[in-house]
Design a protein around this nucleic acid. Structure first.
Lengths: 344, 344
DNA sequence: CACTACCTTGCAATCGTCTGCAATTACGAA
DNA sequence: TTCGTAATTGCAGACGATTGCAAGGTAGTG
């Protein structure tokens, strides 16, 4: 393959013996052109298979009609769903999307931001990496007056719009469900403690406990680093707790799945011996045996909402004042939590 | 947020009382500049937080250093893995990536191509949609001398490089495994028949059968449209076949998972009553009960290889003649296929 | 002192598109 | 016939960065 030269306005102009400006106006269907001229130009353009050079257009109007997205991992089903929602809305509103993944690394997150800013994206949608515990790079974006918004993995202090799930209420719902089914000694398996969702979900967990008059027991709050080894270690640790807890709520589904798999190997029956619940409603949650009770958070909708708001801001349809959009989650009850016969 | 104006070379030039060309040369570390001038400019650029405008650079050099990727669905774990591999390699080689999804629609695929071409991507990596049965849009790319490559979902006649898995051999391996475990009446559940992978995997299925002296039985080759309903229908249909087949090989894991779920509801035991195997090794395959025997195809590696080859072509490191890269798959034996005690 | 040669730097054109303004033409009206 | 006005079209500069060429300056040499 050789250099695939694109047809430009200049070539159309030369072929028809008119100026480039005339061609430009014709293709914009400008009313000040003679109808016949316009027709000829449009026809020639179609025939020559002309496509506007978006790069040149963007440079001219100082808007690239492109958005940047940074997620921790594309291979996570949840983030893939978000991206899908973002794409669908962005495309119908005439925007392209450039996607980057931070691989849960702060350094990569910073690099991605640099790249996207250099690429002149009109706005950024960012979900923070697990490692992100400093925020200068975000404040810098803010100072440079670059439009961006945080979703799912947010940092609350930064004065930009945020789209999150109601993590507190989601966790509250699922823990309440466990309590209603008779459990009292309930373990919370947290991810790294400075993670936004770790904190929020713990808050919901504690709220449900206190509502049922159950005192917080610090020995029932465990932390995993979210690696397979970490998860398995937690699984074993739980079995060693005496007396054995009646239920376990894991901060995210993958942890619950690892725990479940490990327990089955040890001959533990779920939910008979111990109830289990997760959060996110990953595809795996529905197909493990027993199916996993969890909290569903529609990533596709989150993506759609996030990008809609950002585009509204860009297009001047929404105020530039930061707002916080909080989406509701839904409790999905499956077999893994049916511990005692419920009191319904 | 107001319009986030970027610092340009012009501003640096004005501030230091030099010309824009001097600034440009300084930032390129050109040797023909006075060292002191260069130092001052570089310093000012850093202080003013200058970032080159990639749009302008791209326009100037007629290379955007951006690649386009089109996949049927981002939310598919396999394609997400491919994208991840593509990104990692592209980024380390100084390229950005724009991702589009066709949502399995031909019209969307065409639209995506238009967008990416207008965006002046330097090359395209395409995995065809399920619906794609005409190929003019690809031949047009070819005629316009735009660099592109097909991966996974390919069309064999188009004279461009292709990266695929050895679907024939993968299917052969898994069916051979079923045969070795004693099964003889083996069902093949195919997707739409004009799909590349449908055909190739059937080829492997037939080859294994014939090697074991088993005659092809057309009534054991079923087709699903890959929707949930279609899959369930196939699941029921299989149970109604008399005498009941001993094993079933589904073209892709999601079909196998649907079939498995449906059968469990009907009280069928797997693998005791009937053996089951899939293809792809989705995350779900490992966690269903019983765990699903399948064929693993590393999407991440495919993405890496595909983009490496395309970039090699772009950078003149590889011949422009189309080549075909075929990756090997690996049989992953799990419980779902352990039907009869094997003859090992 | 004059001339050459090199070292630095700036000018101007370019990439493809858009647009304010000027220029040309034609037409009708007085 | 002459002027005004509207209808068309082109010129040129801009967006931001790059680069061949030329110009300015300095220093060195005879």
């Amino acid at each position: 393959m050789k250099k695939g030269r694109q047809v430009t306005m200049k070539e159309i102009a030369k072929k028809l013996g008119v100026s480039v400006s005339t061609v430009s106006r014709a293709l914009q269907d400008s009313p000040e052109l003679h109808a016949e001229t316009k027709r000829k130009i449009v026809e020639a353009a179609k025939e020559m298979n002309y496509r506007p050079n978006l790069l040149a257009q963007s440079l001219r109007i100082s808007r690239s009609k492109t958005l940047g997205v940074i997620v921790p991992e594309i291979t996570s089903h949840f983030f893939a769903s978000c991206i899908s929602g973002i794409q669908d809305v962005a495309n119908t509103r005439g925007y392209n999307v450039m996607i980057c993944q931070s691989n849960e690394l702060l350094s990569q997150e910073k690099a991605n931001i640099q790249t996207l800013v250099s690429s002149q994206v009109d706005g950024l949608l960012i979900s923070l990496s697990r490692e992100t515990n400093t925020y200068e790079h975000l404040y810098e974006l803010y100072d440079r007056e670059i439009n961006f918004l945080l979703f799912d993995r947010v940092q609350e202090d930064i004065p930009v719009s945020k789209v999150t799930f109601n993590d507190v209420s989601g966790a509250y719902q699922v823990v309440k469900h466990l309590l209603e089914n008779g459990s009292r000694r309930i373990v919370y398996v947290s991810g790294p403690e400075d993670l936004y969702i770790s904190k929020k979900r713990k808050e919901g967990y504690l709220r449900a406990l206190s509502e049922f008059g159950v005192a917080e027991d610090p020995s029932l709050v465990l932390v995993t680093d979210l690696t397979l080894e970490g998860n398995l270690q937690v699984a074993q640790h739980i079995l060693a707790i005496d007396p054995r807890p009646e239920a376990v709520f894991c901060m995210i589904d993958p942890v619950a799945v690892d725990v479940l798999t490990e327990w089955k190997k040890s001959g533990i029956r779920i939910p008979e011996d111990i109830a289990l619940a997760g959060f996110t409603d990953n595809p795996t949650a529905a197909v493990v045996e027993p199916p996993l009770t969890t909290v569903s958070q529609p990533g596709y909708d989150m993506g759609k909402l996030a990008v809609s708001h950002l585009l509204d801001q860009l297009d001047g349809l929404a105020s530039e004042d930061p707002i916080s959009i909080v989406l509701d989650t839904t409790l999905v009850v499956r077999k893994s939590s049916q511990h005692f016969s419920s009191k319904k």
